Each structure stands twice: as structure tokens, then as C-alpha cells.
Amino acid sequence: MKIVVTGGAGFIGSNLVRALTDLPRVTEVVAVDDLSTGALDNLLDLPARLVTGTILDPAVLDEAMSGAASVVHLGALGSVPRSIDDPLRSHHANATGTLMVLEAVRRHRVPQLVLASSSSVYGANPVLPRQEALRPIPVSPYAVSKLATEAYAVAYASCYGMDVLPFRFFNVYGPRQASNHAYAAVVPRFVSAALEGRPLQVHGDGTQTRDFTYVGSVTSVIVEAILRRVSSPDVVNLAFGARISLLELIAELERVLGRRLEVVHGPPRAGDVRDSQADCSRLRELFPAPRRYSIREGLEATVAWMSQRGLVRR
């Protein structure tokens, strides 16, 4: 069974490629990545083939997808602040890129497409927990581009009979997540600063909440979806409803490290959602026993990986 992962050299993609290469039923794994945000180091020593190029190029997708049993579309340009700085680039990568992938999947008659949207699509909708039927009120170009991603997938399923499984990811974190750029996510930023002895920069008062999801949970659900050929005509939250504040996250990181951390507060960021929490009822209908990691387990694994890789100084 051949599996194609777009964004395969990125954070979630490389973790998924690693999990897939361990499966006896998977005979070939192909990672597609233009390496604009992904890294070759993420795929070192893995028996996977890398097709280097953009998902906006049909020839790149044709090279990767011929004979594939499933495609997992994770290729995207992440970050709300990045999308505010350059909305056109986010739209091209995320919305147009998804359309190109869908056309390639249709062209090659790939039996299954799993793809990633984002909890950011809920935006300003104040209802918690976030249930998939809630009205999306996106407040950033990134969120709009991910809403387009899932809407295209659902439309293609309806028009062309494609088997799709669109997930909404919630603040995924863990090993191989970049910490050294301006648009880094909050967990790797906090861990990197803590290990290097720098103050943790918090945008706002720190009481804003997130449903942090360890990458191992995400990859285990996707692997199960591939092996059981799970599809859904509707989008599915991929998180577990474990909402915590940034201040609580910092407190847990302090317990993991066994010391107090310095925190510096700054103004809130444009486009940030105040609170986020998943309703996971639909996820549990499709995946009755997903692998779930506590925030403590996830932080311990993230700290260990960043330390062992020598990415930061203690």
C-alpha cells in the first residue's frame, strides 16, 4: 500500500511519515514538500521517498500520486500572524494548494484523501466546546484559507464521489516542531525559551485557553483512518476537549523542568482567538479508542526531543 503525505517534511507530516514507515501493510511512503517550512532533517534515516516541489505544480503531484492508496494532505503555510503579514501567500498555499491536490487525487483516482483544516475556522464564535456544526466566524486570512480547504474537500466528495476525511486540528505540538522563527507556535516557543533561560513571551494576560493536542494522538488517528479507510462527509474535530490556559501551560512546563520560569507579557496579537476547546463526539464515533496523551506526557516528550537534538541550550 502506497501512501502520499503532502507537507511530509514538516512537523506533523514527518511524524506521520515516521509512523507509516513502521507499518508492515505500508509498502511505500512518499513525502511531498517544497521545504519552505519543512526540513530535510525531519526525514533523515526514514525509508521514505521525498518529492521536492510545490503542491501548486501538477507535475510534482502527478509524480507522487501515481498508484497511491491514500493521500494525506498536510501541506500548508501555517500561522495566523504570517497570514496577516502576507494573506495572498497563505491563500495560494492553503486554498489553491488544496484545490490542486484534490484535482490530482481525482485525476489519479486515489481511493482516499485525509486532509487537515484548523480550529481557527471557528474564530469569533463564542460557543464552547466547538462542535463541528457551529457557524464558522474566521478572524484571520489563515482561518479563511483553512475553511476553504475543508469546504473544497466536502464539495469534491459530493460532486465526484470521493472518499474524504477532513480534520480540524487544535494546537498540535510535539517533537520536530520548529521553534526558531518568527511564526513559531506557542509550545515550541515556550520550551525553547525555557531551556535557553530566556523569558517566556506571552501575548495578552495568559488566561486565553487552547485545546493542546500532542502530535502522537494526531498521527495515530490518521494511521487508523488509513488502515480502516475511514471517510466522512462532514469535518471532524481532532482534539480531546482538554482546554487549558497559557498560564496553566507554563505552570505544567515548570513542573516538568522542576524550576520557575520568567514570564513577560505583551499586547494581544491580531487575529488570535480568545478560547478554544473541541467537542470530540464525532471523533469518538469514528475512532472509539484514540490514543490520548496528557499535557504532562506531551511536554515531557517535547522537552526531551528538543534537548536531545541539541536545538537549545539548557
Rank of each mutant, 00 (worst) to 15 (best):
V4K: 01
V5E: 04
V5Y: 04
T6M: 04
G7W: 00
I12P: 02
S14D: 09
L16G: 03
R25Q: 15
A31Y: 00
V32A: 02
D34S: 14
G38R: 00
L40D: 10
N42A: 06
L43C: 06
L43I: 07
R49H: 13
T52P: 10
L56P: 06
L56M: 05
D62G: 11
A64D: 03
A64F: 04
M65T: 13
V72D: 01
G78W: 00
P81I: 03
P87R: 00
P87C: 04
S90I: 11
H91S: 10
N94G: 07
T96P: 08
T96W: 06
L102N: 09
E103T: 12
R109Y: 13
P111C: 12
S118P: 06
V127W: 08
L128H: 09
R130A: 13
R135Y: 08
V144G: 05
S145L: 05
K146H: 13
T149L: 09
E150H: 09
A155D: 06
Y156G: 06
P166T: 02
P166H: 02
Y173D: 03
V186S: 09
V186A: 11
R189W: 07
E196R: 14
V202Y: 00
V202N: 00
H203I: 11
G204L: 05
Q208T: 14
S232A: 06
V235N: 05
L238V: 10
R243K: 15
R243V: 15
S245F: 06
E248G: 12
I250V: 12
I250C: 09
V256Q: 07
R260P: 12
R260Q: 14
E262N: 15
V263E: 12
H265G: 08
G266V: 08
P267G: 11
P267Q: 11
A270M: 14
L286W: 01
Y293R: 11
S294A: 12
E297V: 13
G298W: 01
L299N: 03
L299P: 00
A304Q: 12
Q308M: 15
R309Y: 11
L311D: 14
